[in-house]
Amino acid sequence: MADTVPIIDFSAYGLQITDRDSVSNSELDILASNVCQALSTVGFLYIKNHGMPQKKIDDFFRINKTFFTQPECVKATCESPTGGLNGYQGFAKERLDLSKPGDLKESFNYTSYDGPIDIQWPVSVLGMGAAYDEFYEQSTKLSLRILDVISLCIGFSDRNFLRNCHQSFGSRKSPGTLRSLYYPPLPASASIEPGQLRCGEHSDYGTLTLLFQDKCGGLEVC
């Protein structure tokens, strides 16, 4: 098994191609083969030339940094009033590995489905709601294109096979979740419990995860 995560050039089917039907299956053969090789060996892959402008990604990171550096009393107003997933989750409130103490991070969650989104947006961070709406929409479009390629790589002649299997995506039957994670600096005096991590070991629960990182790195995959 390879010990590095492969980098896949997605330019043949990226979002910069506005009409996906203009790309034939034969034109996607090499892309599908590379994706299949990565997912059937390493299980993870990097994609480049995916069509989501870097400026949009940077702007989304920036607006989240603005939120997470607000006073705690401001962020607390964005917690779910019902204890649900949507909205802000405070430092060490989440445990992805239930056998370990709370993760040393904060998060903001946006779960979209066919109905009103029960999120209290902070008035002090202008445009945060619109930024999440747009980033969710673009990430969904890219996810579906990746599923199209996976359909071809596992042998279906119809690239829409997995797309059609996910027709409930974005509904209450199959909500998609956009999560922003923040790992604040830990003071030297911070008390860290045995086994406590920034983000506990876990397996994601959906069909596909898109992960956008900053330049700090730190992700580990197995």
Rank of each mutant, 00 (worst) to 15 (best):
T207N: 10
Q167D: 14
Y182G: 01
C73R: 12
I47K: 00
Y13S: 09
Q120G: 00
G195C: 00
G217E: 11
T18F: 08
P53Y: 01
R179I: 09
Y183S: 10
F135S: 03
G87R: 00
S203G: 12
L210Q: 03
Q196N: 06
C73D: 15
R20L: 14
Q120H: 09
S112G: 07
D103V: 02
I150D: 03
D9A: 06
A76Q: 11
K48V: 15
D21R: 05
A190W: 11
S189Y: 08
D158E: 09
R163H: 11
K100C: 11
N164D: 15
G218I: 10
E220F: 01
I117P: 03
M1E: 12
T66Y: 11
S139V: 02
Q54K: 06
D133N: 13
L181M: 14
S139M: 03
T140M: 15
L197I: 03
D118W: 00
R95P: 00
Y46L: 04
C153A: 13
S11L: 11
S168R: 00
K100I: 11
E106K: 08
N164E: 15
S124C: 05
F169S: 14
E134W: 02
I150A: 08
I8F: 00
H50F: 12
Q70C: 15
Q213R: 01
I8T: 08
G195D: 02
R145G: 01
R172W: 00
D148E: 15
C36P: 00
N164R: 14
C153P: 02
L126A: 09
I47N: 01
P184Y: 12
K173A: 13
Q89W: 01
P185A: 06
Y113K: 07
E79V: 14
Y113R: 08
L31A: 07
L96M: 09
S168N: 13
V42K: 06
I8G: 05
S203T: 15
Q120K: 12
R179E: 08
D148F: 06
L211R: 05
G115Q: 07
I30W: 04
I7W: 12
A190Q: 14
G83Y: 07
T4K: 11
S139I: 07
L31G: 09
F212V: 08
N109T: 03
S180K: 01
Q16E: 04
K48D: 10
L104N: 00
R172K: 14
K173V: 10
G14S: 07
L152F: 04
P122R: 00
I7T: 13
V125L: 05
G115D: 04
F67E: 12
E137D: 15
I57V: 13
G195V: 03
F108C: 05
G84N: 07
G14W: 08
A188M: 13
F61D: 05
G51C: 02
K55I: 12
P185N: 07
E137G: 12
E201L: 10
I17W: 02
R163M: 08
V74C: 10
P185Y: 02
Y136M: 12
S24F: 02
G51I: 01
L85K: 09
S22G: 07
P53M: 04
N109L: 12
G176D: 03
L197A: 06
Q89L: 09
R62N: 15
G83R: 05
V125A: 02
F108L: 04
V221H: 05
K100Q: 13
S143R: 02
L142K: 05
